[in-house]
């Protein structure tokens, strides 16, 4: 019986030669390009949620935030700083590995991960204490929708960071080979930048 995927395949093939090497018609790294395109579609998902925000707040002319509620600008602001600093530590980890500093890589990745996790916990704590639910009014729906969507992205980003961290501790990556760190890194930076946009439009403006 044919096995499912080549990875786990147990059959052997007559001709053992592999495919010819594909021509590289662009200098861009395929994985990197894939990630960038993926980020474009992620931006569009956020775009759709911002459309909802726009309709409720501007077109519908509803008060923002909803009457009788307040958004914890300050705590969220501190949280923003936490998330942004995780971008810096991530950058430090990346620079370290390029310079062959393995300890820097490990510590950098671990701090990044912990900072990200802190952000998420603070966010969850905010949900618990904020005093309104998504089912209360449309503003609540949009608030939870946008921050929740972002939270989900932080969560995915954390999984990616966890993978990178585990691999870093297992001795993966080197001065030459660090694409596996770079590509999740772009995603994490994207998550951070997106937060700034969400924070500005939901809490500040």
């Amino acid at each position: 019986m044919d096995a499912a995927l080549p990875v786990t395949g147990t059959t052997t093939h007559e001709e053992h030669h592999g495919p010819p090497e594909a021509n590289r018609s662009s200098r861009v790294d395929p994985q990197m390009l894939g990630m960038l395109l993926f980020i474009i579609s992620e931006i569009m998902v956020f775009g759709a949620f911002f459309t909802a925000y726009f309709f409720v707040r501007i077109v519908g002319d509803n008060p923002w935030p909803a009457e009788g509620t307040e958004l914890p600008k300050l705590i969220a602001g501190i949280n923003t700083a936490i998330l942004l600093s995780s971008s810096l530590t991530l950058h430090w980890a990346q620079t370290s590995v390029k310079n062959g500093n393995r300890r820097g890589l490990k510590v950098g990745m671990l701090t990044t991960f912990l900072l990200g996790a802190t952000f998420l916990l603070v966010q969850i704590n905010e949900y618990v204490n904020i005093g309104f639910a998504p089912s209360d009014h449309a503003q609540g729906s949009i608030f939870y929708g946008l921050t929740g969507l972002h939270g989900a992205h932080v969560f995915i980003g954390l999984i990616l960071l966890a993978i990178v961290t585990v691999r870093a501790f297992r001795g993966h990556f080197s001065e030459k080979e660090h694409a596996g760190l770079e590509i999740p890194g772009i995603y994490w930076h994207f998550v951070d930048v997106m937060w700034v946009v969400v924070y500005t439009s939901v809490y500040i403006v």
Binding site: G47, A52, A66, G145
Partner: peptide, 27 residues
């Protein structure tokens, strides 16, 4: 991604009581 989001909205409205499309609640 926009169709995905439109269906997310519907799912949230249906399952968690969000009000994206509930005119009575400002949706």
């Amino acid at each position: 991604p926009f169709v995905a989001a439109s269906q997310f909205f519907v799912l949230l409205d249906r399952s968690l009581g969000f009000n994206f499309f509930d005119a009575g609640q400002g949706g």
